[in-house]
Amino acid sequence: MAKKLAGALIAALCIGAAAHATPTSTAVIATPPQPSWASLSVEQKTILSPLGNEWDRLDNTRRKKWLAIAERYKRMTPTEQTRLQDKMRDWAMLSPEQRLAARERFKEFNQLPPEERENVKQKWQEYRQQKDEEQRRKAEPAGGDTVPANTTPEAGK
C-alpha cells in the first residue's frame, strides 16, 4: 500500500519536474491535439498563411501558440499585422535555441528607454553596412585588382 503511494509520489514528482523545467523546446509540454491546417477557419488560415506549408509538421504546442498569436493579430494595427506576417515564416524556421536566445534579447531590448532602442536600431543598420562591406572585400580577388566582368580566367593568363 505504501509502495503504491510512493510510486504515485515519484510519478507526480516526475510529471511536476517536467512541467517546471525551463524548456529549450516546447516539445516537453503536454498539449492536447490541435487542429490540422485543413481544420482551421478561413480567418485563421488567412492570418497564418505564411505557415501554411509547415503547419501540419508543427507540434501541438507550437500550433496552440500560433493560434493564440492569431487571436492577438486581430487587435494589432495594420502596420503591426504586416510586420508579424512578414517575420512569421522566418521565425518558425529558426531553431528552438535561436528563438529562445532572441526572446531573451528582445526582453532586454524592450526594457531600454525609447532613445536607446532607436540607437540600437541605428547601430544595427551600421553593423549591416560593415558586414556587407566586409563580404564585398572578401569576394574581391587578392591584391585588390578587379577582373573585368567579360574576362574569363583563361583569357587573363
Binding site: 498569436i69 510586420r83 508579424l84 517575420k87 521565425w91 532572441a102 528582445f106 531590448f109 540600437v120 536600431k121
Partner: peptide, 11 residues
Amino acid sequence: DSALLSDDVPM
C-alpha cells in the same frame, strides 16, 4: 512572440 514579431526591431 507576438510582441517581438510585430515590433519594428529587425528580427
